[in-house]
């Protein structure tokens, strides 16, 4: 594994692409849902790292905000094969589905004047609402497990008042919460 010849480099890039392409095309439910797929490729299929190392990288990824799938792909690609590996792994996990998305929506938009296409937009809205409602509920449940029901409800009410009624940009509130947590002296 440690020996690296020029042909191995090419092979590694091919593997990185194939691995993260599969993760991108098979993972439903957004990035967090695809973590087990990434683990399967990185630990089992290609043995880029052992399970413990993967857990470390995942934990480090979770200390930072933003999408987790691209952080994992980018970091694993960078670790195994430098900047090219990073670009390669990210492209493999992102580009195919973005292209699908653009093709689908652009072709849908070219039929925009037909009433049945407008009907499709209407039909799908309640489904999105249900998915978001379920996501809302899971965030509330996780929040009350991790910080207690009262604190979670209190923070939720404060957020609702500040953002929905007073029109505060959510970025300020989230940044303030992050700073408060980081600034607090850690208890043991």
């Amino acid at each position: 594994m440690a020996r690296s010849q020029p042909t191995d480099g090419k092979k590694l890039q091919r593997q990185l692409f194939a691995g993260f392409f599969r993760v991108g095309m098979l993972g439903y439910g957004g990035g967090p849902a695809s973590i087990p797929l990434i683990q399967k490729e990185a630990v089992d299929t290609y043995q880029w790292m052992d399970e413990e190392e993967f857990a470390d990288i995942l934990a480090i990824g979770n200390t930072l905000p933003g999408p987790i799938a691209t952080k994992m792909a980018g970091y694993i690609g960078w670790r195994k094969a430098g900047a090219l590996g990073m670009a390669n792994a990210i492209a493999a996990s992102v580009v195919p589905t973005v292209i699908l998305m653009v093709i689908l929506l652009v072709s849908l938009a070219s039929f925009r004047e037909y009433s049945w296409v407008q009907g499709m937009t209407q039909g799908v809205l309640p489904v999105v609402a249900v998915m978001l409602g379920v996501l809302t509920w899971s965030f509330l449940k996780k929040a009350s497990v991790s910080m207690g029901g009262t604190a979670a409800a209190g923070l939720a009410v404060v957020s609702a008042v500040l953002i929905e009624w007073l029109g505060l940009h959510p970025a300020f509130l989230i940044a303030a919460l992050i700073l408060i947590v980081l600034g607090r002296r850690s208890r043991t």
Binding site: L140, S146, M147, L155, A156
Partner: peptide
């Protein structure tokens, strides 16, 4: 950190 922002994200969702 993840816990602290969860109620706010839930409200936005």
């Amino acid at each position: 950190l993840s816990a602290a922002v969860r109620p706010t994200i839930a409200v936005l969702l």
